[in-house]
Design a protein around this nucleic acid. Structure first.
Lengths: 345, 345
DNA sequence: GTGAAAGCGCTAACAA
DNA sequence: TTGTTAGCGCTTTCAC
């Protein structure tokens, strides 16, 4: 509540400020924007008047003149869900710093609504659009030859020349695998989501590649199923049956990992002593609620959002950023579920 | 100005439309807005030209003239988390229908940032502000005598005259209790979050009141603890010790309920046969992942958001909506965890 | 029925 | 150093 200027019920224009400071409107403008040369006394008088009246320049008017709006649109099909939110926050972070405000739109994954919102955003003269999603599957772009730059974050346009920022699913899988190998595990199983998901396939590929480099291969079959705990429970049983000597399980999501953890516990396998467990997503309520707390791959969604915003800002500034796909590295969050087994007695 | 080298489609002004249709700007404006009387032929000519050129009226210019922006701000301290998102979506729903766009801001629960964002929103001449939060605890308002109406959703201003829309924690507690009573349970325990949370206290009060009406009281003490699964696991043990004959447990959150469910299973109590379980939040990944799937109280967050938006729209329209707190009823989502025990065979 | 002109709040030339 | 003027894109009188 520092500024006493707050609380002006009526809108104060620069006209009012000029009048109060007994200068012309033009002079007031210059004083407020620190442009041109003028007596310090005059400038101070204007600034004081502005302060006193609680003057806020009207960005509509400024924008009208400058031909800019200092706004961008953020369109999500994920209903701002678990994945798009961190992305969104990262983006807002980067944009907010640049005085750019964000219009949010939720399309509910409906192309009609999406079309509608994009129209609306363009009508509002946003200077760019960020599209986020829940999956990394390539999707049709929101339109071609749009008058503003578009960046896809955590989703990918089928048009290869569009700018897309996506997580490193494959690298994440490899990261998990190498961590397990480093803690001495060699019989590593994999329970993951539906095969039709690019993300699931990539994570599995990352695992296989890393194991391959160590002369190993996944224990049992790679088990594709659902993105659910229930499947985690089932999958673990299948895996224990197919590869009873499994000593680590990498899961395609934290939810799956929780299901796996439960089954392991019920089958008398201790985590991490008998079987180490790695999840994917670093979805904290899941990962921390798990017994034991879950080591998991973090896709750095916030970074994806920040990067998307930065690309967009560059594009708005006219700097050619070069289209194409940018992959943001994943990182590993270590918790109890992969604590190195103490030497057995 | 946009870089001249940009291949972006050039913005079409009403001037261009007027020229193309060979009418004056004023006539073009009237034709486009369906105002005034004019020859159908003229109107059609203008509309055709606008269509052909892809004309979109510039809302900045329109707003400048009308003194409106058709935007509102949405400020959250919850980092658009689990609670504020459904609220947000509900709000966006109601606002979007009215052609109002939403600026989003995340304050990260930092008063400085909040102050900053509110300033920014006001500078942008939003016509109203919705404040959402993660808790229902009363919080200081975002400022007094703001030039635009403010509605608090899923949070509450300490200033009683402010408009706040909050969930019915007490009613939700009562709802859970009555449901359990209706399925024949009489020894009902309660494990919930920290006592310092208004929400936890209200839910407990709702339970007690409903039990009281049936001449009962909670089994064991009401156990206040944390909003975590871990506490759910511990709390269940405490409760089983204090009231071994407990036949139902109402939990202050779905996360707690999951913890409780785990302990119950490990102690050999079947859910729902031996002990029925009710959660709070209807947080689907938690409630559905639970074994068995959880009956839980839904706060109808979307409705809170919609209502907040509607209040705001009314206020913007100048309709006195009357300040104060509005409580949105909760509902119960039935799942396996309270299935009426079948007659034992 | 149509057009010319004023002005929304602001900035950037140019005059004084 | 300061004031005046001409718009940014649009809507809206009010003459014609």
């Amino acid at each position: 509540m520092a500024s006493p200027s707050e609380g002006t019920a009526k809108t104060v224009t620069i006209r009012d400020v000029a009048a109060a400071a007994e200068v012309s409107i033009g002079t007031a403008s210059k004083a407020l924007n620190g442009r041109g040369r003028m007596r310090t006394e005059t400038r101070d008088r204007v600034l004081a008047a502005a302060e006193r009246l609680g003057f806020r320049p009207n960005p509509l008017a400024q924008g009208l003149l400058a031909g800019r709006t200092y706004t961008v649109g953020l369109v999500t099909g994920d209903s701002f869900g678990r994945f798009s939110i961190p992305v969104m926050l990262g983006a807002e972070d980067a944009l907010g710093a640049g005085k750019i405000s964000v219009f949010m739109c939720d399309t509910r994954d409906d192309p009609i609504r999406e079309r509608h919102y994009v129209e609306r955003l363009l009508a509002r003269r946003v200077e760019g659009i960020i599209v986020t999603g829940r999956r990394t599957e390539p999707r049709p772009g929101i339109g071609r030859d749009l008058p503003v730059p578009v960046v896809y974050a955590m989703t990918q346009s089928t048009d290869e020349s569009d700018v897309s920022i996506i997580p490193d699913d494959e690298g994440g899988g490899a990261l998990a695998a190498r961590h397990l190998l480093a803690t001495g595990r060699t019989r590593i199983g994999h329970v993951t989501g539906p095969h039709r998901f690019e993300a699931a396939r990539r994570r599995a590929r990352g695992l296989s590649t890393a194991l391959d480099a160590a002369g190993l291969e996944p224990a049992g079959e790679v088990l594709f199923g659902q993105w659910s705990e229930e499947w985690g429970r089932q999958g673990a049983d299948v895996l224990l049956h197919a590869a009873p000597d499994v000593d680590a399980i990498f899961c395609g999501s934290d939810q799956i990992a929780r299901g796996v953890a439960e089954t392991l516990r019920e089958r008398g396998r201790r985590v991490p002593e008998d079987v180490a467990l790695v999840g994917f997503d670093n979805w904290e309520p899941m990962a921390l609620g798990c017994r034991p707390p879950l080591t998991t791959v973090d896709m750095n969604l916030g970074e994806i959002g920040r990067l998307a915003a930065r690309h967009l800002l560059d594009a708005i500034a006219g700097t050619p950023t070069g289209g194409g796909v940018t992959i943001v590295p994943a990182s590993l969050v270590l918790r109890e579920s992969t604590r190195r087994a103490a030497p057995q007695g």
